[in-house]
Nucleic acid binder design. Structure first.
Length: 435
RNA sequence: GGAGGGAUGACAGAGCGGACGAAUGUACCGGUCUUGAAAACCGGCGUGGGCUUGCCCACCGUGGGUUCAAAUCCCACUCCCUCCGCCA
């Protein structure tokens, strides 16, 4: 949620910042109008309530003094004012609700550093990395044996069974077999082991309350992108960011605790409602995948370093796996609702000949903290909102796809990166079943 | 799923219709005393909101209701504890 006090203080600044991501000035004017109206009504309601309270005290005094006449007179007076107060409060609530609903739809102010632009074409590529780059070797050229889509490789090796997934849950729910399934498990262990020294390992619930979804900004705006279990008023989490942000919801943290750094592996569920018909083949876009997330609650001063740390860890994993990737600086229009600045990592997948988004490293400033009401006690004793930052360390499915395509050999087998050997039972190569 | 008990400030714990935003204790912060520390004593010590910055308003698990007046009474829900049943 944006800061309403800031909107009052410097409306033109806020409007200009939001205009960079396509929020109209008229929308903000309406919010300002509601805010003014709300405060006007609130003052009137509170004035009446103060009067009723005062009269009630006088009734008590009169009763104790056995002055029945005065008590009856004051009671009648208070009753009349009470009715007025109820009306005024109701009017205040109506406007407050309207204001809250509008405010919840407003995205975060983009960072001044975020590039201009209204769609993904305006994203800025910051850098690329590939194996051997540091030694002066040029961007890799991929052989014909690597120009095979992962779903073909998966079928060939018997490690990906999309048909069974469809049978069980419908399209875009993949099923992995044998070494393919173990490869996923290995990626999870590998990513967690890399970070659990500095980030506390968390295993959160996979479902969340509406309030929890509100806190990160996934609701009310993105309801169609998520799976709902209406009977129990629960939502399937689209990322571990959701439970981790609410883990300390409503708390006032000790400044000495910060930054609080957490990591969690969870399943992530996405309906992909807006993308029907796109990327339907293989693992490019799926409804369920696993992901290791890195997350931190921190002070505003710590946020930049925390963001950079998560980015370098996410990059470090891709480098260890020997995957080619690039870093994109998302333009204002392509930022997620809650984010002020996001850097995306995309791996190059030679078989499908595309860059695949595998990580989003975002800085939310106090946007989510305001919704989740997560604060910390500063050294001078006052409270302030924390900043939240997070990023995917490793998101499967797409990583899996890029791995098998990148490491496919001329004989059709897939060689596994050395770093996974301890997790693969020292298996270093996946061979076709027949051979 | 059934029966009972409970939910109050950082923690413990009182209050069970009328000056209660809330006694008391602990913890914490400042001061006195002390070479220093402890003890003792004194003072401070919830969060948010509104505006005329001194005042007002809200919050005692959540949401409704009764009343001139609700932490306190009534209803529903949630969560925690104990017991019974079922179960990975």
């Amino acid at each position: 949620m944006i800061d309403l006090a800031q909107l009052r203080r410097e409306p033109e600044f806020v409007k200009a910042a939001l205009a960079r991501r396509g929020v109209s000035s008229a929308t903000m004017d309406e919010i300002v109008r509601l805010d003014v109206e709300h405060r006007r009504l609130l003052q009137e309601a509170e004035r009446l309530r103060a009067e009723v309270k005062d009269l009630s005290r006088q009734v008590g005094d009169a009763r104790r003094a056995k002055d029945t006449d005065a008590a009856d007179r004051l009671t009648a007076q208070s009753r009349v004012l009470g009715d007025q107060e109820r009306e005024a409060t109701e009017a205040t609530e109506t406007v407050a609700t309207e204001l809250r609903e509008q405010l919840l739809m407003i995205p975060n102010l983009p960072s001044p550093d975020a590039p201009d632009g209204l769609d993904e074409d305006a994203n800025v590529e910051l850098r690329r990395w590939w194996v051997g780059m540091d030694e002066g070797i040029g961007f890799p050229t991929y052989g014909e044996h690597q120009r095979v889509a992962h779903w073909e490789i998966g079928a060939e090796l018997g490690i990906l069974d999309l048909e069974s997934g469809v049978k069980i849950a419908g399209s875009m729910f993949p099923l992995f077999r044998g070494a393919g399934a173990r490869l996923l498990r290995s990626l999870g262990y590998f990513a967690l082991d890399r970070h659990t020294g500095d980030y506390e390992e968390i295993r959160p619930p996979s479902f969340a309350l509406t309030e929890t979804m509100m806190s990160t900004g996934h609701l009310p705006k993105s309801a169609d992108d998520m799976y709902a279990i209406e009977r129990d008023d629960l939502w399937a989490i689209p990322t571990a960011e959701v439970p981790l942000t609410s883990m300390r919801r409503g708390e006032i943290l000790d400044e000495a605790e910060l930054p609080i750094r957490l990591t969690a592996q969870t399943a992530c569920f996405r309906r992909e409602a807006g993308s029907a018909g796109r990327d339907t083949r293989g693992l490019l876009r799926v409804h369920e995948f696993d992901k290791v997330e890195l997350f931190a609650y921190c002070t505003p001063e710590q946020a930049e370093a925390a963001h950079a740390d998560i980015l370098s860890r996410a990059e470090g994993l891709l480098q260890s796996l020997g995957l080619t990737y690039r870093v994109l600086d998302l333009c204002c229009g392509d930022l997620g609702t809650s984010s002020a600045r996001t850097l995306d990592l995309e791996v190059f997948s030679p078989g499908v000949d595309r860059w695949l988004e595998v990580s989003s490293v975002s800085w939310f400033r106090d946007f989510q903290a305001r919704r989740a009401n997560v604060r910390y006690r500063t050294s001078d004793g006052s409270t302030a909102l924390v900043h939240t930052v997070n990023g995917s360390a490793l998101a499967w499915a797409r990583i899996w796809a890029a791995l098998v395509e990148t490491y496919r050999q001329p004989d059709g087998s897939v060689v596994l990166p050395d770093v996974l050997a301890p997790y693969m039972g020292d298996q270093t190569r996946i061979r076709p079943k027949a051979s």
